[in-house]
Design a protein around this nucleic acid. Sequence first.
RNA 1: GCCCAGGUAGUGUAGUGGCCUAUCAUGACGGCCUGUCACGCCGUCGACACGGAUUCGAAUUCCGUCCUGGGCGCCA
Length: 520
Amino acid sequence: MAGARTDLQGQRPDHQHDPHLPSGGRGYGWSLDDGHRRRSLPVAPHLPGQLPFFSAPPGAGHNPAALPEQLQVGSIRQNTSPGPHCTQVFHMRLPIRAVTPKTEFAEIIGWVHEVRDLGGLSFFLIRDRTGIIQVTIPKKKVPAEVLDTARNVSRESVVRVRGRVKAIEKAPGGREIVPEELDIISIAESPLPLDVAEKVPAEMDTRIDSRFLDVRKPRVRAIFFIRSMVTCAAMEFLASRGCINITTPKIVAAATEGGTELFPIAYFEKEAFMNQSPQLYKQMMMAAGFEAVFEIGPIFRAEEHNTIRHLNEATSLDVEVSFADHNDVMDLLEDLIVHVYGCVRETCADQIAELGVDLTVPAKPFPRIPYTEAIDIANRAVEEKLSFGDDLSPAAERAIGDVIGQHYFIVDWPTDIRPYYAMPYPDRPEFCKAFDLMHPRMELSSGAQRIHDHDLLVARIRAKGLSPESFEFYLRTFRYGMPPHAGWGLGIERLVMTMLDLSNIREAVLFPRDRHRLMP
RNA sequence: GCCCAGGUAGUGUAGUGGCCUAUCAUGACGGCCUGUCACGCCGUCGACACGGAUUCGAAUUCCGUCCUGGGCGCCA
């Protein structure tokens, strides 16, 4: 490992700082093992259990006790566990956000966000995922090595800065570091494939080509921090409601539901497909007696669509609950949406501010509009009139969304345009207990009470022109005691997209898979 | 699958037959500058997707290829 040392670090006398790696057994080369540094560093910047950058800012009135009861589930909101966003897992350096005007001395590691050279004075903005800090270099006052390194550093290089913190009104965050040491840990090539400082915009295509750089932008990173909170909050919420977290196969034998196109793959000597939905498997877990399950996982659709709201690989949050009907699971879905919005609002204030969105928690209950009424509303607004049995066009969805102006359900769909497993109303079988959850912009989720009667299910499969034989692995679970059940599937990307008012669904996924893109 | 729009320095753009060895911004490089915060100023560098055609002359028109964006369809 010692041989790996490069001349970038050559001038540094302190061997314990070798950034090249975890020297054997003791963890990180940067661990705070030097007596002097231990003394000079501020008191532990990480309060136990604190989420350094997800916690609400001081004075923001973070008071879980004041929240409506339905929002007070679990620990994420209350910051009692480190959680997935905690920066304090490693102690190689101080997270930039933890450097305050009161900090005396700090060592930070981050990316060079911007450089402004004023001649005798130059400013470096150093960024990590917690924030940005200004490093000020008065050329006549810093060591010659620092000056030398500062001359050679390029934007987006990773640098280590160690120095005294000064409280300066004029500096961003009211503080800056004057370096005693400055090392280039990893030099960035130039020019950059896109401008991380966001002075010049980049097209989505360029951005995805260099997604690792694109997500360095604080604005883009904020989307994914929030997405993380969305899924964490949803999981926590569902667990609190007694749902069991399951995973189901993504490689399946047959086109199980008809309808959407599947991606074929080679599975040894057999043909197989990428699964379009966990639907059949989560229903099978009702037969297994799990009573309530959820899964967050990928789904694959081989449709050649080319729109800002479709992906060929998406993330679905699927829920299935026994001894429940469509109304019960709509209530659950509504509660989940409100909970997730609430969690994001409470814990991601910085990210919301970064994105400049107005994130209001939707009010319960969401209106439940029968399909026939939805058609009427749409027909008052759109040119292309819909008739009974038509699915809603994107224009119709938007027209209804404009009228309703908030999240809403469309209920009581014609049985013919819903999947075979949707439960028809016994007294009017042309309608079924299916629903869609709509955001004013688009569909977020669809679900239904399912058919739990074997023979009725077989009849419905036949009526759809499908063959019950190819569903035997599924149908047999209905012959040994299948409870009544209901459930839904929710598109995570669409949830994030509508929550943050993103113009393109690709913004809500790190590495989108669409009609043309397979890399990176 | 159908339709529409597009491809110009690393990035984002202007440019609809000669005014273009191509505009502006950002960037990189060099120089000046001690409180910037999209720092400022001076200078330099860097591009017309590919192939063919029309024309005295093509970034610009036409044809083909490749690539891209979007709408619709499709999408429980």
